[in-house]
Simulated assay, not measured.
Amino acid sequence: MTRPFREQVDEEILDRAAELFAQHGFAQTSLKALAEAVGLSKAGLLHHYPSKEAIHEAALDMGRAQARRVLDDVSRLPAGPGRDMRALELLTDVALERAGLVSLALRPITVPGEIEEALDVDDVLIHEMFAIDPADQGSERLIRVIGALSSLAVLSLTANHHGDKTTWRPRIIATCFDALGHSRTGTSSPGSDQLED
């Protein structure tokens, strides 16, 4: 087995496992369910990762690494609509490729009662990516970013399961950009003309 193939298999395992963790939470996701989801026996899954905890941590690490790559790209841009758009484009691309990882990374934002964990653990990435003042916890900007990221998580999962990713991508980005409160001058939402029928 070549190294790139092994890495691809591991990424697919982690993405599918991350989706289950995001949907059901760590405690409610069994090793058996993880193995079935990735098409392996429990022993086969444990050959790749020694425990459910190791799978969970590896999935979180992989999601953080993706977020850091996005942050590295957008950090050179000034705060504002251009930076927000670029972050949303990159995050959407990651989410359409690895929806489970993005859903797990954003779970604390999308699950009631877990928001404090999200803002404590990965707040640096979220705050830096979207140029939010960490001290401003009740700001409209923070609420809009949470709304945009929640939309991104839900829409990318739906696109991966039921949609055509090429069709969904610009609509996901537009929806999230709108959630941030930016106006797209001279444009209407993709497909909005179809809503008036």
Rank of each mutant, 00 (worst) to 15 (best):
D123N: 04
L119K: 09
G39N: 11
C176P: 09
V154I: 13
E57I: 03
D73A: 14
D193F: 09
E117I: 15
E36I: 00
A179R: 14
E53Q: 13
F21D: 13
S41D: 12
L152Q: 07
L46A: 04
L90T: 08
S51C: 11
A174M: 03
P170W: 01
A54G: 02
S30A: 01
A67C: 11
V38C: 12
L45Y: 03
R6S: 05
A148P: 11
S139K: 10
K165R: 14
A27I: 06
G44R: 00
V70S: 11
R184K: 02
D197F: 05
L152D: 01
L60W: 10
R141M: 00
D72W: 04
I143R: 14
K165L: 07
L77K: 06
G44D: 06
C176F: 05
R141I: 10
L45K: 01
D164E: 15
R169K: 12
G181V: 09
D72A: 10
A79E: 11
A153M: 05
E12C: 12
D197Q: 03
S51M: 12
M129N: 09
E128A: 05
P4S: 13
G82F: 05
D123R: 15
E12W: 06
F5L: 15
V102S: 14
A79I: 08
G82C: 00
P81G: 04
L88Y: 12
A131L: 02
S183Q: 10
D122W: 10
A35T: 07
E7K: 14
I173Q: 02
A18Q: 09
R169G: 15
A95E: 04
A118L: 03
E7Y: 05
L91W: 15
M85A: 15
D15E: 12
G39P: 06
I115N: 10
A58G: 08
D197Y: 05
L152F: 14
L195E: 12
R64N: 04
L155Y: 09
S41A: 09
D72K: 08
L71I: 00
G147V: 00
G181E: 12
G63V: 04
D178R: 14
I13F: 12
R141W: 02
R3Q: 13
L45M: 03
S192K: 05
V154E: 10
R144E: 09
P81E: 01
